[in-house]
Amino acid sequence: MLRRRSLIELLDEMQKRIEDSFEEFFEMFRERPSWDISRGCFEPLTDVIETQNEVIVTADLPNVAKENIKIHSTEDTLEIEATMRRGIRFERWGTIQREVEFCAFHKSMKLPAKVEPEKAKAKFKMGILEIHIPKQVKRISVKIE
């Protein structure tokens, strides 16, 4: 049988819903823009997957040629820089409402695990960069007593 909810429960539910909506709304504004007009730079869309042995990072780099991509990695960070084939001009860009031209991508990120950057491998196809970096793995054999 369905139980009729009390007024307090309904008010609690309503309050939670309002709080959630506000949190979502302000979360939007806490984010920084994915572009930097002073450098004419976009932050590329990226995805990071951690498997047992490696960290795989992909990045969407349209309008870029392979030779114009630079990747730098330390044991726990990765930086991707790329210059576009031709600048992309927008007449009135977003909140700043003036003409801007973007000609590069830049993204720095913290990796989810310590890696061996010197063993990293990358490929670039259809504007998608895929980097495989082996994780620092310490394997210790455990003796059975």
């Binding site: 994915s34 976009f42 590329p44 869309l45 969407d60 349209p62 309008n63 992309i88 973007f102 504007g127």
Partner: peptide, 17 residues
């Protein structure tokens, strides 16, 4: 216009993701 579309749709893709 594929490259241009990919650039313009980045933010919506981020939200959709």
């Amino acid at each position: 216009k594929a490259d241009e579309i990919r650039l313009k749709m980045r933010d919506l893709m981020k939200q959709t993701d």
